[in-house]
């Protein structure tokens, strides 16, 4: 994610100051080790530490010409406020609650595509759900709900949790104790709201050195879209699942959210996929796939998911460099006016 911001900044001929989240400084320092002797001194600067002190000082500095931020909405709002004070541009990516929509025709045949669709639902557990675009709401057409979920739950039940350095592990621990506590509290809110726990909902029982790890079982809660577990990014392996009647119903539920970062649509009907892709208010809609991040495809959100797009050509041309018009006359003759 740091590269999404650093690469266009450096390609545009800028110096950059990067502040990683206070809990995740390691990977960016590792990147600096790799490229530190390639970029000239002073071009790439990394500052670690608490955001409350350092973040504000950086974001309000008169020496900063552009800010890009990924995180939660209140800090995003502060970033935009500070950018306004200094009259500089900003881009903000503030998360999502991405719908993953499964139409009945995915079960028209028991084939590789159906298997792919089931896998597409289970991708909510990818990176333990700690992804802004996590497909954390599954919308399943009611006529296939039971049969489709049976397959999905069977697949979720087979996810192997363990040491992330073990190649056979499919899901490691959450990022921090804070994250684990928050996930637990969300499952609790969901149950209080009347959601039905279909699988998971607790820490797995792991032995030895993993016993006190920040692991959480891949979890599915069934409920309705007005529940908080359907409305707020949990940033963990917790899927909120509900049903829809028809295309219009699917679209209404998909768009009934404060966010609009990602979405998935699964169907064998190309026209339906295209209509949904056009109508879902999200910065990217994956059709019959999910979690693909090719270079060149714009990434960013509608609504409270933030302002601006990254990862595509205009990120470089519009965000990390200026657009300038040079108007040059090659005639020595006056215009003949006045």
């Amino acid at each position: 994610m740091a590269a999404w911001k650093l690469a266009p900044a450096l390609a545009g001929g800028n110096c950059a100051v990067l502040k990683p989240a206070s809990s995740t400084p390691w990977s960016i320092l590792k990147l600096a080790e790799l490229i530190g002797d390639i970029v000239p001194p002073g071009v790439l600067n990394i500052v670690t530490g608490p955001g409350g002190e350092i973040g504000k000082a950086l974001a309000t500095s008169r020496r900063i010409a552009k800010i890009a931020f990924t995180g939660e909405t209140v800090t995003g709002r502060l970033i935009m406020q500070y950018a306004a004070e200094n009259i500089i541009p900003s881009t903000t990516e503030l998360g999502g609650k991405s719908p993953n929509v499964f139409f009945a025709d995915v079960m028209d045949a028991d084939d590789a595509f159906l298997d792919k669709a089931v896998e597409g639902l289970v991708l909510y557990a990818f990176n333990k759900g700690e992804v802004c675009t996590c497909p954390s709401r599954a919308l399943i057409q009611e006529s296939i709900y039971d049969r489709f979920m049976e397959r999905a739950l069977e697949r979720i039940g087979r996810i192997r949790q363990g040491n992330p350095l073990d190649l056979s592990t499919q899901m490691g621990p959450q990022n921090s104790k804070q994250q684990l506590d928050k996930i637990r509290s969300y499952v609790d809110i969901g149950l209080q709201e009347g959601a039905e726990l279909l699988i998971g909902g607790k820490q797995p029982e792991l032995d030895g050195e993993l016993a006190d790890g920040y692991f959480f079982e891949p979890t599915v809660l069934k409920g309705h879209n007005k529940m908080r577990v359907f409305q707020e990014e949990i940033f963990g392996p917790v899927l909120a699942v509900t049903t829809f009647r028809d295309e219009a119903d699917a679209l209404e539920i998909a768009n009934d959210t404060l966010y609009g970062l990602g979405a998935g649509v699964w169907t064998r009907n190309g026209s339906l996929a295209y209509r949904m892709g056009r109508a879902i208010k999200a910065g990217r809609v994956w059709t019959n796939c999910y979690h693909q991040y090719p270079a060149g495809a714009a990434f960013g959100g509608y609504k409270m998911s933030g302002v601006g797009r990254e990862l595509y050509r205009e990120t470089l041309t519009e965000h990390y460099s200026q657009t300038k018009s040079l108007l040059v006359s090659y005639s020595d003759q006056p215009l003949g006016l006045f």
Binding site: G52, T70, L258
Partner: peptide, 18 residues
Amino acid sequence: SGGCCDGSLPVCLEQGDL
């Protein structure tokens, strides 16, 4: 707060910052 990462947390700010 809302949204990404630690979005479910209350953000504590000096009065007047936001």
